[in-house]
Design a protein around this nucleic acid. Sequence first.
RNA 1: GGUCCGGUAGUUCAGUUUGGUUAGAACGCCUGCCUGUCACGCAGGAGGUCGCGAGUUCGAGUCUCGUCCGGACCGCCA
Length: 614
Amino acid sequence: MSVSQFQIDSHGRRTHTSGELRADHVSQHVVLKGWVDCRRDLGGLIFVDLRDRYGITQIVFNPEHNAETAKIAEALRFEFVISVKGTVREREVAAKHANMPTAAIEVMADDLIILNTSEPLPFMVSAQESRETKASEDLRLKYRYLDLRRQELKHNVLLRHRVYQAVRRFYDAEDFVEVETPVLMKSTPEGARDYLVPSRVHAGKFFALPQSPQTYKQILMVAGMDRYFQIVKCFRDEDLRADRQPEFTQIDVEMTFATEDMIYDTAEGMLAQIWKDVKGAELELPFPRMSYDQAICTYGSDKPDLRFGMELHDLSRTFKGCRFRLFDSVIEDGGAVVAIVVPGMGDTGRGKMDKLDKNIVRQKLGARGLIHFRLPSDGSETVSSVKSEVLPAEFVNAAVTATGASAGDAVLVLAGAAPKVFEQVGDLRLHLGRDLGLISDSPDGPWKFLWVTDFPLLEWDEDSGRFHAMHHPFTSPRAEDMGKLGDDPGSVRAQAYDIVLNGSEIGGGSIRIHRPDVQQQMFDALGIEEEEAQARFGFLLDAFRFGAPPHGGIAFGLDRIVMLLTGASSLRDVIVFPKTQSAQEPMVQSPDVVDEHQLTELHIQLLDESQDDA
RNA sequence: GGUCCGGUAGUUCAGUUUGGUUAGAACGCCUGCCUGUCACGCAGGAGGUCGCGAGUUCGAGUCUCGUCCGGACCGCCA
């Protein structure tokens, strides 16, 4: 029989999936349907691993059992779609993959129907190959439907599904209302760049895809919805990273009459639900909290990775008046001298240290240069990278004491302007943590959650010469700092918080402003003119005039959460059809050009390429 | 916008340092043999615009310039 011949599926519906047959199914007659994961043709006997979403079952074709069926089976190749009618039986020889759930049995085929054939594959899909594919990501994205058949990606998709369900179950039980907010909204060019959608009906006007449903969810609070959540796509037209996609999914939450503690409780409850449902893990609640200032001073980051120690030490006082010019000048200018203690680095040679200095500290971190004190493990005298004539030994020893370093450790020191030098040492800490194998990205944890609280409300932007909202312009200042908004905006703390997991920011939120006068003060501090504020956010200011309740909320990066749960190294592995780093989608090849006609309808005229530089 | 790495058979790579015969390997594909495999085995075969374009050279996969694509990072991401 020719393979190309059209086959009618006379087997009827499948009786089982390829993942569920066990020893107690033996001697049952079954119908299985799925893909040929692989085929082992021994000349007479043919073994086929039949795969579907649920698992793999071994099918045996034996010419002595049914010659005609065995003959058809010779034509089977990778990824053919087949229907098999047969009898479950115990395996004569123990399976080599005894850990496979269906390893105890096989199906002796009585009949085989080839439902569809497959051309030779651009890359291997079969289970053995798929644990760690060698295919380039480019190719995998182009043939994403094949990539998604692989164990790893299939697992990620299914896990992501369980996360959605856990989230919905939790919020529903907590009386939250799921509401869909518009995807076509208006551009609010504060922050990230918007994706714009031209309006056909209104010449020269544009919708924008939401960077977040922020203003809508606040208005839902004004509307009395009380508790809202949504699993929602958000869009940002910025450059991509391994953990950044132009369209991504948020778990968006807002609560009326919320305090920070109420938000923390609910968020912790939701995360605990996810971890319980997906990992069977009980998270320890509540999560620890740390202020933004403390995070920067202790870890040099607003998203500290607590999976390992190596905290920062501010040695500015220790080195005060040390006569080492670099330290003295930095301290005099209000900068800081910051150190970390690296265990096991006390015997590291000068060459390696210089390499670290050159390749990492100077090139990658852009810092001024690494100073180090090594404490050999044999307890001999501390070796300083700076000669004692230049930096007296008493100061080196004081530094060693202050950091608590002991034999076998190295003390690494950077000096520079604060807070930048803290961040640089923080990056160095992360680099070394990874380098020394102190960080494990295993999907089994450990899970180190942390709330980072008391973020600054504003940050100074050198380029535009004005303050920017660190979170967003609707974030409420702390009540006690409200008075400083006018004279000393830089020192105002916000009621804003981030939730950090293993050094990744997986969510953030704030208590919002709910009074028009405070919102106006905030716009003033941001240098947004009244007219402009009215044009951009008038609808929100209006809403605040009609009994807006106090409210606050949080949004989680669902993709990042799934990425951490799966141990994936890239967001692209947990998104079914992701964009490449250049924000394109290789399978459908978007974005793409459109007809002149379509453009005309949208009142759009393209600039000449040559005018691009203008 | 910038820095760095990569692009050679359907796929993953070697070959580029030092330019020189017919560009190799593994997997996949095709043919034949093979009745207990599970990375099945054995034998044979087909398969290449060395990303693209210019340049240097007697001669370029290899050197130079440009360009496109992919990736990591910086800037950017309220």
